[in-house]
Amino acid sequence: MREISVREAIRDAMAEEMRRDESVFLMGEEVAEYEGAYKVSQGLLQEFGPERVVDTPITEAGFAGVGVGAAMMGLRPIVEFMTWNFAMQAVDQIVNSAAKTRYMSGGRVSLPVVFRGPNGAASQVAAQHSQDYGAWYAHVPGLKVVAPFDAADAKGLLTAAIRDPDPVVFLEHELLYGDTGQVPDGEHVAELGRARIVRPGRDVTLVSWSRGVSAILAAAETLADQDIEAEVIDLRTLRPLDRVTVLGSVQRTHRIVCVEEGWPSCGIGAEVIATVSAEAFDALDAPPRRVSGAEVPMPYAAHLEALALPDVETVVRVAREACYVDV
């Protein structure tokens, strides 16, 4: 094991897969000479050259389509969006081309492409640069959607995504890039579609993914001081959703709180709670709860932005309510 940042973990996953498989290449805005707008692709141009680390013009729809077309021919493109906000320009290629072509072709065309970049709220960059797209892409059959929290998962899940034969939407988080964690030495491949119980507990299940996991881990610490043992689940993959792990946890704790940065309407939390309500209704001792981003375009001012995002205090309060401690 060694301690590296999420940023380095993502870079290492790409570099190792590019060494292993000639058909893997990286394309996107500023990925080569600038080494990534968030310095994620440091050193890749130097090692692999401009044919495999390709700077694109600012043309998201176009280069997303180029990536999908290259995948049709059996290459394994990693298409970087500088942020997922800009991928709105390319959503047609991600949904209509990448996600649907295997089905439309009766299984004749494979599209092993990874779309990746930072997703969710950064720091005071306001509405057009702060949005969580997890629910948008998790809605689409044909896509797999991955959102890692720590460095080990960033490496293991990205490696799995690059090797996967289907299109994968890989949602990183700018505010996690600098976080460090222990990553296994050598090849490290995690399994897509598996959630992870980060902290076991018996009283209430807390579910989140990506940066939300730091909030529920902190909430679990606070709750432990108050004699409430929360079970913390990192979903890791939003599609396919690991319903088995979530339902199993609720069977033990009988209570669930789902925490997401994004808007609640038709969100991942809504899907998790619908699943629990339908399939573990009899196990529930309290209504399932959500803590989410506020339903507003993200404001700029720091104090307003903080109000629009889920915080640890709210998670603690809602978890206590779910446990009927404060009622």
Binding site: A64, G65, V66, V68, A70, M72, M73, Q93
Partner: peptide, 8 residues
């Protein structure tokens, strides 16, 4: 763009 990706 897909055809352009094929050419790529």
């Amino acid at each position: 763009p897909l055809g352009t990706g094929i050419a790529f």
